[in-house]
Amino acid sequence: MRFQPWDRPRRGERPGTYLATSKDLLAWSQPVLLMADLETGSSDLRQLYPSLLDPAAPDRNFQVLGPHPLLFTVEVGAGRPPRERRLVARQVTLGLPR
């Protein structure tokens, strides 16, 4: 199973990190919202450059994901420059098809 996370929703979709899956890299599932951007009132936080990595992966390139990988994003404030950027890791649970 292959995963493709991205941070640019289609028109009309809620801003956030989406995930699609594929068994053959040709046919992909419909994207599902993995994590919505955070709306904090005074300034919105965007989650950019999503990557799924599993510290328990058996190879050094993190090509295998278990059911509880880490979602790494760069959190960016929506205010004026200079925008604060933070690297954030959150554990997620994936419902993997069998």
Results as ranks from 00 to 15, higher is better:
39 E>P: 02
25 L>P: 00
47 Q>G: 01
61 N>Q: 10
64 V>H: 11
90 R>C: 10
49 Y>D: 10
95 G>Q: 15
18 Y>H: 03
66 G>A: 13
29 S>W: 04
83 R>K: 13
87 L>R: 10
3 F>V: 15
43 S>I: 13
54 D>K: 10
23 K>G: 13
39 E>D: 15
33 L>C: 05
30 Q>K: 15
5 P>E: 02
55 P>A: 13
20 A>Y: 01
48 L>S: 02
18 Y>G: 09
85 R>L: 13
78 A>I: 02
21 T>H: 03
36 A>R: 14
77 G>M: 08
46 R>A: 11
14 R>K: 12
72 F>R: 12
31 P>R: 10
68 H>P: 00
93 T>P: 00
96 L>D: 00
27 A>L: 12
49 Y>P: 00
26 L>V: 10
61 N>I: 03
35 M>F: 08
30 Q>L: 14
22 S>T: 05
36 A>Y: 08
64 V>Q: 11
38 L>F: 09
54 D>Y: 07
25 L>C: 07
21 T>N: 01
92 V>Q: 03
47 Q>T: 05
47 Q>F: 14
30 Q>E: 15
32 V>M: 11
28 W>Y: 06
88 V>M: 14
76 V>F: 00
72 F>T: 04
54 D>I: 05
92 V>D: 03
48 L>I: 02
6 W>H: 10
94 L>N: 09
17 T>D: 01
35 M>Y: 04
26 L>W: 04
17 T>P: 00
82 P>C: 01
65 L>S: 09
33 L>Q: 03
56 A>N: 13
5 P>V: 15
64 V>K: 04
38 L>R: 09
90 R>W: 01
30 Q>D: 15
43 S>H: 12
16 G>V: 08
51 S>V: 14
31 P>S: 08
92 V>L: 06
90 R>S: 14
91 Q>I: 07
48 L>P: 00
58 P>W: 01
31 P>H: 03
63 Q>E: 14
88 V>K: 11
51 S>W: 03
25 L>T: 10
27 A>V: 12
52 L>R: 08
8 R>D: 13
95 G>L: 11
15 P>M: 05
50 P>D: 06
84 E>Q: 14
30 Q>F: 08
71 L>E: 01
93 T>R: 11
19 L>V: 09
6 W>K: 00
96 L>T: 01
22 S>N: 05
68 H>R: 14
22 S>H: 04
38 L>Q: 12
9 P>W: 10
27 A>R: 13
52 L>N: 04
58 P>H: 01
70 L>D: 14
19 L>R: 00
65 L>H: 06
92 V>G: 02
63 Q>F: 07
50 P>R: 04
53 L>A: 12
35 M>T: 12
24 D>T: 13
5 P>N: 02
7 D>H: 13
35 M>A: 14
9 P>Y: 08
79 G>H: 04
95 G>Y: 01
59 D>A: 11
45 L>A: 06
39 E>Y: 09
18 Y>V: 06
37 D>R: 11
42 S>G: 06
84 E>S: 14
47 Q>C: 08
77 G>N: 13
69 P>R: 00
56 A>D: 15
94 L>E: 09
38 L>K: 08
7 D>N: 13
49 Y>R: 11
91 Q>T: 15
53 L>E: 05
29 S>M: 07
37 D>H: 05
76 V>K: 04
68 H>G: 01
34 L>G: 05
90 R>E: 11
12 G>T: 03
18 Y>S: 07
13 E>Q: 15
14 R>E: 15
85 R>M: 13
